[in-house]
Design a protein around this nucleic acid. Structure first.
Length: 580
RNA sequence: UGGGGCGUCGUCAAGUGGUAAGACACAAGAUUUUGAUUCUUGCAUUCGCAGGUUCGAAUCCUGCCGCCCCAGCCA
């Protein structure tokens, strides 16, 4: 059984919508029932040219999820046909991320590059059948002769070379006798086809770059449309699931498999890719953010890469839940960022132990509490789960409270601390604010309060009602920490919608707020990297794996708690503004 | 004005001729030593629009409108 950072078991099943059905699962169920297939084989085929993001998680959960449901296998296949931009660094990162998400490809790890020899033979077969030819047109010429959306293309002057000549030329390409760009191998289909992908598409090009796995063995590389369908076929994939933008490619996928002698013909099915507002999803844009230093790396906690989410503190289970909740369909869908955050909260609410930490400390001196006294107060680790136990928290004369929990002139309905007001210190005592100390600029720097010795633990023997309960930490015992508060990376819902403006102009300057003088309860001394906690009344936090050092813990805020007080404040502000 | 797709609540999403599931969001209320959690209630007489077929249509037919994808020797 896997465990999360807190040693809590991670449920292997997405809890919500676990048995949801969708049009793909319906097709598969029918194929099984009709006897078309005895077993199902799916695959996840990333190109190792970047890190996996939440959009890939949707595809991973779909493909590996289906395999699990049908007691079958999902292959992991690297689609590595473009050596110029692929690397083993990405291969390793991708494998690690899939495992972290909770999936296992077992023995079924493949690379399209493993099939280069067979792919080459298939190309030969195509040539012999008169279905492919070597074309010496330049890239520009090919583009120009391809026609447009409304006009048919023109046939290449090289289109009717003999099979023998094509075979010889293709061999020369393979042997490195021709330079990149001089010619390509094209499928011979139909230059007048309304589907542009069928207008004699390029299927092999010369690239004299060494490949991360095959080295310099090859200087010709097959294109996606030729590689993908044949790789699926070779592996006996039954259902080849991909995103909607490959819809037009399906005709080519089928053409290749129909034209060649193949033992099976996988079915390509497309579904809508994942879009989430207030972020960007394309690998190209994520890479740009990394390269240009707008974020600290692929694993920056603000990035919706799997490594970023992991570092931020998202649990694999919450991401799997998220993928189950959003469903699979064929329309362009925009998922609200709030749905992802909700998935994180739901999982963390259940598993994360509660602790107290003060992010923006304000010192409070309890004037009637003995200077040398200290006591241990008991706190529970999870209000709904007594089995998670209790811990003790030290208490003394000087404590820190959250600066935002005090207001000198509180608005109505503010039931925290204010001059003359009484609040409860969680698990400790009721205190009353007697005096406000300010610096020369008028900033509140300290509070003098009195505590009520009769209220130890926070109870009120006289039955008096106290509306506010705030968190605190003992000044003498607190451990100092850095806390990083993350907000949305972009300020607008659709950063890349505007074709005129670069998406980076919408980057949120306040996406990261670093707090260096946070005060945490001493029990957190025992936290180990990747452990997650709820800092009561504030949110869920995760001990950073990278920047935490022995003397200086660094916590990342995964997500805030729901905060109806802030919403109420905003509403009151709006209402007073519009009052007649 | 080529071809391929898609249009059901603010956002996702079931529904496949029998009279609009569910989730998120939102709103109101209850419980609460986290303004958290939990709970209760409310939230599409209507399915892009217009016709038609039918006893009956979101589901079938016709026309229209809107949005997405395709002119990389990327995947």
């Amino acid at each position: 059984m896997n465990t999360d950072g807190n040693n809590n078991p991670v449920s292997p099943e997405p809890k919500a919508a676990a048995q949801t059905t969708d049009f793909i699962r319906t097709i598969i169920a029918n194929d099984l029932q009709s006897g078309k297939h005895k077993q199902i084989v799916t695959r996840f085929p990333p190109e190792p040219n970047g890190f996996l993001h939440i959009g890939h998680a949707k595809s991973i959960c779909l493909n590996f999820g289906i395999a699990e449901e049908y007691n079958s296998v999902c292959h992991l296949r690297f689609d590595d046909t473009n050596p110029g931009r692929e690397s083993t660094e990405y291969v390793e990162a991708i494998k690690r991320d899939i495992r972290w998400l909770g999936y296992d490809w077992g023995e079924h790890l493949y690379y399209a590059s493993d099939y280069f020899d067979r792919l080459y033979d298939f190309a030969l077969e195509l040539i012999k059948k008169g279905k492919a030819f070597v074309c010496h047109l330049s890239g520009d010429e090919i583009r120009e002769q391809r026609g447009t959306l409304t006009e048919p293309g023109r046939e290449s002057p090289y289109r009717n070379r003999s099979a023998a000549e094509n075979l010889q030329l293709f061999e020369q390409m393979k042997n490195g006798e021709l330079e990149a760009g001089t010619c390509v191998l094209r499928a011979k289909i139909d230059m007048a086809a309304p589907n542009i992908l069928l207008r004699d598409p390029v299927i092999y090009r010369i690239i004299k770059t060494s490949h991360h796995r095959t080295g310099d063995k090859w200087c010709i590389y097959p294109m996606y449309d030729f590689t993908h369908c044949l790789s699926d076929m070779i592996e006996g994939i039954t259902h080849s699931l991909c995103t909607l933008e490959f819809e037009n490619n399906r005709a080519l996928y089928d053409w290749v498999l129909d034209t060649l002698e193949t033992p099976c013909h996988p079915r390509q099915i497309e579904f809508a890719r994942l879009n989430i507002n207030y972020t960007v999803m394309s690998k190209r844009k994520l890479l740009q953010l990394v390269d240009e230093g707008h974020v600290s790396g692929w694993d920056d906690p603000r990035m919706l890469t799997l490594s970023g989410l992991r570092r931020r503190g998202y649990t694999p289970a919450s991401i799997r839940d998220f993928c189950a909740i959003i469903g699979i369909g064929r329309r362009d869908a925009w998922i609200d960022m709030g749905v992802l955050e909700k998935a994180a909260r739901d999982d963390l609410n259940e598993h994360a132990p509660r602790v107290m930490g003060v992010l923006k400390p304000l010192k409070v001196v309890l004037t009637n509490y003995p200077e040398d006294k200290a006591e241990e107060l008991e706190a529970i680790n999870h209000p709904q789960k007594p089995e998670m136990g209790v811990r003790t928290i030290p208490f003394c004369r000087e404590i820190y409270i959250e600066a935002t929990d005090f207001m000198e002139e509180p608005p109505k309905k503010f039931f925290r601390l204010a001059p003359g007001r009484e609040v409860r210190l969680r698990y400790a005592y009721l205190i009353t604010c007697r005096e406000v100390i300010k610096d020369e600029h008028g900033n509140v720097v300290e509070l003098r309060c009195t505590y009520d010795p009769e209220t130890r633990g926070g109870s009120t023997p006289d039955g008096r009602k106290v509306k506010g309960t705030i968190h605190w930490v003992s000044a003498r015992h607190a451990i100092r920490a850095e806390v990083r508060l993350y907000n949305r990376l972009f300020t607008v819902e659709h950063p890349d919608r505007d074709k005129e403006k670069d998406f980076k102009t919408f980057l949120n300057p306040e996406s990261l707020e670093v707090l260096t003088d946070c005060m945490l309860e001493p029990s957190l001394q025992k936290a180990t990297p990747a452990d997650r906690f709820q800092f009561e009344r504030q949110g869920y936090f995760c001990l950073d794996e990278q920047d935490t050092t022995a003397g200086k813990p660094v916590f990342n805020r995964v997500v805030t708690l729901r905060d109806s007080w802030t919403r109420m404040k905003e509403k009151m502000k709006k209402n007073t503004g519009t009052k007649p």
